[in-house]
């Protein structure tokens, strides 16, 4: 049966919406409200050109790309009104919350937005270096160096907690 674009979009949102929210949640360093907001905005952009998106070979991958770019645009808009540091705090996070997962989110939130996007694409989305570079419009060497730097910073920040997190 042929399906209408509207119906297909609803099905797509039902299938991929949760994953988009999760990705946004990681990108925002655990901001639940902003994550839903970004996921909605990304889906709204897809809806606007659903005739084309639905016929792509990988609409889900495209949706993730749109989401990441939506996140980075959001950060750029906010950057005009806030101080964004590219310098990672070299002191351990002292999160009173017992959940170690929240500690990781807090640490992610401390990273520069683009480094966070690199990590989420590489390790959550399982994208290759080439794909990540293409999505973020970076060179492949820049992706590798940002990834390495961000992981090093996370390790410095979390220390032994990274190992604890892995076992939890």
């Amino acid at each position: 049966m042929e399906r209408t674009s509207t119906q297909d979009f609803g099905e797509f949102a039902a299938t991929r919406g949760r994953h988009l929210v999760r990705t946004a949640f990681l990108l925002t360093g655990g901001d639940a409200h902003l994550a839903e907001d970004l996921a909605q905005e990304a889906l709204g952009k897809l809806y606007g050109k659903w005739h084309k998106v639905a016929r792509m070979d990988n609409p889900a991958g495209y949706a993730q790309t749109v989401l990441v770019n939506t996140f980075l645009s959001h950060r750029r808009r906010r950057a005009a009104g806030e101080h964004v540091t590219d310098v990672f705090a070299e002191t351990p996070v002292t999160d009173p919350d017992p959940s170690l997962r929240l500690t990781l989110l807090r640490a992610l939130a401390e990273l520069p937005a683009q480094d966070r996007a690199v990590l989420v694409l590489r390790f959550w989305e399982d994208r290759s270096v080439e794909e990540t570079a293409h999505i973020l419009r970076l060179g492949e060497s820049a992706v590798r160096s940002r990834s390495s730097r961000a992981l090093t910073r996370l390790r410095a920040l979390l220390g032994s907690e990274l190992d604890d997190l892995a076992r939890s």
Partner: peptide, 17 residues
């Protein structure tokens, strides 16, 4: 990351669409 993502909100799919 997969563990942490479990903490994400889970809005109803139809509402999200």
């Amino acid at each position: 990351l997969h563990d942490a993502a479990e903490l994400a909100p889970d809005p109803p799919a139809a509402e999200l669409a």
